[in-house]
């Protein structure tokens, strides 16, 4: 057994012009969450409790796109989603379309622990939250002034870029659209300056070699009401088994198609690759044109990350004293 390891992320695909003070704030938050996880691991908390604890903290801080600070739907509302998975028995829980639950990741945990199901969504998830007595807040709590401004920008950009993924529509003939596609720094069809990546996630292996993963997000800025992304989908945004724990972030649709999180585990299991090799393989081979990043830990106490886009907010630490917090390559 290689000791504990932990990694956190706050999304992939970062605007290179992000103000320095915001970069600094992001790094401080990642370091704070990492230290919180490290303390829990040193106190022998099981991996599943540690990932929940850390993601709760990331949700509660308004900086990243989850919980408070979530990206807004086209209607200006917040619809959050989250999932959690416990490696040893592959139990999992997920929620989508949550609008009043302060910590969606903890509701996902309750779906796993207290319901016969793995995944609850929209009004059913809200009803379950009330039954379970989790902390509820008004939807306004999640909406930050900054995101209201971002939604406005996204709507302006979207009027040009809507349906960017559908070749048959022929929007590329539109002059403004052509200008926008010249800009290489786009995520999900939005200029990177208004794209709100910043999904959060945490993966942990504890001293017993148990792996766990959790991911939480407000989704895509200006998304349609009802849109489900990769974060709540087991095997896409989140996966944990007896070998590893994985949390992904980036263009949700590319991650879903690639079953990205499961594939890290699958190439370890079926191809015999090591953790970093597995991460590099899926980022290179499985994303096609999509842009994404991920963090992973193995049961041997290794930690790894990878991304094929412009930067990823991430931090990691291992029991032997290694610790890193970074944004760029």
């Amino acid at each position: 057994m290689g000791g504990w390891a932990i990694a956190v992320h706050g999304g992939a695909g970062v605007d290179p012009k992000l103000p320095a003070e915001r970069q600094e704030a992001a790094k401080q938050l990642l370091a704070r969450c990492l230290n919180m996880g490290i303390s829990a691991l040193r106190s022998n908390f099981p991996a599943i409790d540690v990932v929940e604890l850390v993601v709760r903290e990331l949700e509660t801080d308004p900086l990243f796109n989850s919980g408070r600070g979530s990206a807004l739907t086209e209607r200006g509302t917040v619809e959050m989603e989250a999932s959690i998975m416990d490696g040893p028995n592959r139990r999992c829980g997920a929620v989508s379309g949550v609008t009043t639950v302060k910590n969606p990741v903890s509701l996902a945990r309750l779906v796993m622990d207290k319901s016969p199901h793995s995944y609850l969504a929209f009004s059913g998830a809200e009803e379950f939250a009330r039954q379970q007595g989790v902390e509820l807040v008004d939807n306004k709590y999640f909406i930050t002034e900054e995101n209201v401004g971002m939604l406005k920008l996204a709507k302006e950009a979207n009027s040009i870029l809507f349906d960017y993924r559908i070749p048959s529509v022929g929007l590329e003939t539109c002059g403004a659209g052509a200008a926008a596609t010249d800009n290489p720094l786009q995520m999900n069809g939005l200029p990177i300056s208004v794209y709100a990546p910043e999904t959060v996630g945490c993966v942990v292996v504890d001293r017993e070699g148990r792996c766990a993963a959790a991911t939480s997000t407000g989704g895509l800025m200006n998304k349609r009401t009802g849109r489900i992304g990769d974060s709540p989908l087991i095997g896409a945004g989140t996966y944990a088994s007896n070998l590893c724990g994985v949390s992904c972030t980036g263009e949700g649709e590319a991650i879903i198609r690639a079953t990205l999180a499961r594939d890290v585990a699958a190439v370890m299991e079926y191809k015999g690759l090591g953790l970093q090799e597995a991460v590099d393989f899926v980022i290179k081979e499985r994303l096609d044109e999509g842009k994404a990043g991920l963090i992973a830990v193995s049961r041997n106490g290794e930690v790894a990350y990878g991304f094929n886009c412009n930067g990823m907010f991430r931090g990691c630490a291992t029991e032997d004293g290694f610790m890193e917090v970074g944004i760029w390559e």
Binding site: D163, I166, R224, G229
Partner: peptide
């Protein structure tokens, strides 16, 4: 799959679509 930039729509949003 064919008419939206998304993969997965659910509940009221799917009904509206």
């Amino acid at each position: 799959m064919e008419k939206t930039p998304h993969i997965y729509l659910a509940f009221d949003g799917a009904e509206a679509f």
